[in-house]
Computed example of a mutant assay.
Amino acid sequence: MTNIFAHRGASGHYPENTMLAFTKAIEAGADGIELDVQMTKDGRIVVIHDEALDRTTTLKGFVKDTAYEKIRTASAAGKWKDSFKGVRVPLLSDVLRLAEKADFLINIELKNSIFRYEGMEEEVIKKVRFYGLEKRIIFSSFNHESMALCHTLAPDIERAVLTMDVIHQPERYAAAIPASGYHPKLGTPAVSAEAVKHLAKNQVALRPFTVNRPEDMKWLIKAGADAFFTDYPEQAVSVREECGK
């Protein structure tokens, strides 16, 4: 079965990377959620996509330069503005606490390609272990050195190569990290029915992002893709049911 990951939660209809978006994704029947983590000035692991606060919150400046006590006071409604009241930037531990009570997968993207966030891998791993969720977590990042470090620190937690480029022999590249997941951008030559089959033979899971058109969902499901990331999990679940998967 092709798993459906809600990209930043059910972000097509709710403010991204918020507890509301994650809860709605699980209610819609998603198999998992995808979220992004950054580190605050005081070393807290927060769930937010951008390095800057401006787009998704009512604050300005960088996450790395702002203490969590300030970030937690801001609205995280982003483009939705007044449509959603009281949504905040969650801590990673808030999401992991939710996962203790429900059975879903979590793809944690470490956003450390622009700012290195020294020690973030250790903090994220510590929190995952605290909640006993090692078997339900996938780490991913555009920073592949970070994924290699995650292997050193926690070889039992799955890792994936996140990329917008086309990688030659991705199964060999993933093995060098090592990682067992390959997360390329939909619309690049890296994502094809042939790639799904080839990577499956080499025990590498292909999970493209971001898949929002029903026709793309259909062919990925029929091709046997391990999973895909979508802003519209409810629609994806419906398409999967139509495909009889």
Rank of each mutant, 00 (worst) to 15 (best):
R55L: 03
K41M: 14
L53S: 11
S83R: 13
G86E: 13
K81C: 12
V63I: 15
V87F: 05
G78E: 04
K41E: 06
V89F: 00
E69P: 04
K41C: 04
W80S: 10
E51M: 07
S83M: 11
R55Q: 10
A67L: 06
K85Q: 15
H49C: 09
G43R: 10
F84R: 02
V63G: 04
R72V: 11
K79H: 10
L53C: 07
D50V: 10
D50H: 08
T66N: 02
K79M: 14
W80Y: 15
D42N: 09
A67S: 14
H49A: 10
V87I: 07
T58S: 15
H49E: 04
V89R: 01
A74R: 08
S83N: 13
D54P: 01
A76E: 00
G61Q: 07
E69D: 15
P90S: 08
T73H: 02
R72H: 12
V63N: 01
G86Q: 04
D82R: 13
T58W: 05
I48N: 03
V87D: 00
V46P: 03
K41V: 10
I48K: 00
S83Q: 15
T58C: 09
L59P: 09
E69G: 04
G61K: 02
T56R: 03
D82Q: 15
T57K: 09
A67E: 14
T66R: 00
R44M: 12
A74M: 06
W80E: 08
E51I: 10
E51D: 15
K64V: 13
L59H: 03
D42T: 07
F62G: 02
S75R: 00
V47I: 09
S83G: 01
R72T: 11
L59E: 12
R72N: 11
A52Y: 10
D65T: 08
K81A: 14
W80C: 01
T73Q: 15
T58N: 06
K79L: 13
V87W: 01
I45H: 01
K64E: 11
E69T: 13
A74Q: 07
D65I: 06
V87N: 03
E51P: 05
G61H: 06
R72F: 11
K41L: 14
G78C: 09
